[in-house]
Each structure stands twice: as structure tokens, then as C-alpha cells.
Amino acid sequence: MHEMSIIQSLADSVIEHLPTGTRAEKVVVEVGSLEHLDADVMQFAWAGVARGPLLRDAELVVETIDVLVGCGICKREYSPANPTYLVCPNCQHARPEVIRGWGVMLRTIEASPRAGHGVAETSEAVG
């Protein structure tokens, strides 16, 4: 439901990290599966947001990160198959402490030179 605001921030971050004179070809983002972000909706939002000369036609790759929790009782780490059942397979307590599964991380940008822009150029506004 909040894919649009995430994609806006993502586009801002990509532009911030693009070397001057380049444009993005591909953007890889990791999404924790606790985040309630739908990959298709993210693609849709990306198509709407990535319209300026620095991001246009850049491919968005969304990689989902599985949840990893640590048991608050016996410390065993486990990846629950189902978010509604977080009982520890070792000690049968449900005291999950989330190690991985929240968060949205920009990981990789593939950039290429922009035609006619070999020299420094300031970033564009998104929107």
C-alpha cells in the first residue's frame, strides 16, 4: 500500500548515487518480506516515477529477503515458513527476535554514460 512513497525515496537515492554524466540502466533493491511491499506494485510505481533522463527505461529488480529470526529463549536461528507461526522448532516458544526481514535496501546500480554528457552535471528532480 505504500509502494509509491518507497519508490519515490528509491529514485531519490539512485539519483544521489549516480556518478555524474551517467544514467541508470538497472537498479537492484532488496525488500524484507515483513515490509508488505508487493513487487508488481513496486514495478508499476517505478514505471510512473522513473521518467526523467537519469532513470528512464532503467530496469528495476526487486529481490525478496526471507525472514530470519532468533529465538529469545534458546537463541536458535530459524526462517519461519509462515509469518503466522513463529514458534521455535527447537524449544517450542514463540519469542522471535527479528534478525532479517524488515527494511528496504538499495543494493546495486548499473550505470552507463549519458550521450553528450561526459562532463559534470547536477542531478534532476524526481516526479
Partner: peptide, 12 residues
């Protein structure tokens, strides 16, 4: 010509 830039940035 494509360069890969490794970033680890929290989008939020």
C-alpha cells in the same frame, strides 16, 4: 560501458 555501483543504502 556499463559500470556497476555497489550501494548499501536503507531506502527508508
Amino acid at each position: 560501458n556499463v559500470m556497476e555501483i555497489q550501494v548499501v543504502e536503507n531506502v527508508k
